[in-house]
Amino acid sequence: METQLVLEKWAGVISTLTIGADAKEGGTRANTVKIGGQKSLPLLFKEGDIPNPTAIAFEIWDVSPLDWPEELVAAYGKALDNPFDWADKCINEFKAKLLCVRMQGAHPDFGNKGPKEAAEFISILLSRVKVPLIIIGCGDDAKDNQILPACSESARNERCLIGCAVQENYKTLVASIMADGHNIIAESPIDINIAKQLNILISDMGLNLERIAINPTIGALGYGLEYAYSIMERARLAGLSGDKTLASPFICFAGQESWRAKEARISPEQGIIWEIITATSLMQAGADLLILRHPEAAKKVSEHIDILFKNKS
């Protein structure tokens, strides 16, 4: 008897989210990046269409990072002193096609920069680099509610991905994003019900579900990776089964989490592999967009993605 393959048929499809707008669309980006859109479980290419490879964004800050491990600092050197040099280095030297800028300087403990400065920073960055942008707040809700609308306005029509909206604080950001034509990151604390709820709340305000990326709040390898891994698998199964409120692509801050690990300080290789395995393992659970820090890790993850997607045009 011949063995019949077990193939799953899915009623749902993960929504496609585009980051960046080129001149035709009223923006000024040289390229755009699409994520999501798959009709299959992660990486099962023979089962359903997976149109977009997992994307990688390099994380940069608007100020010099104070607490980054030595190995990470060494990878960028002097460029860390100036965010624009840092951005250039990512693009020119490390071939970044997408940047994720964290507005850390707005945090009360990191300089407490105001909305005007933030808007100006984004405006200069947009004229300096031509790749699409992801813009992340400083993590202080009150400050983010001031600076993120300013950043959003400053980047109007550039179709950035901006976040993070959380269950207790999403309205201000959603309103700005709708007005300025961006996408939003909806963050939930390793909780599939909150992820769903927040997506509903955001779409109830009028922002299309297709403009949301879920940040499931991951843990690094060895630091709770498996919790987000299973939440992502469950959400992806629900999305593919037809639940549109969970059919969003995932953004995972793999760099941020893995460089907090104790292992990141043991040796350069240990830190780099920690970031790589954190990122590639989450791809198995459905990560669509990885925010990475170390250029060598980004290179290796990118090679892995190329091998996986090489038979795709």
Binding site: L221, G222, L225, E226, Y229, E263, I266, S267, E269, Q270, I273, W274, I276, I277, S281
Partner: peptide, 13 residues
């Protein structure tokens, strides 16, 4: 370092 990362992933999964 490679072995530790593989074993840690196994532990997580």
């Amino acid at each position: 370092w490679a072995v530790l990362s593989i074993l840690t992933l196994r532990q997580n999964i």
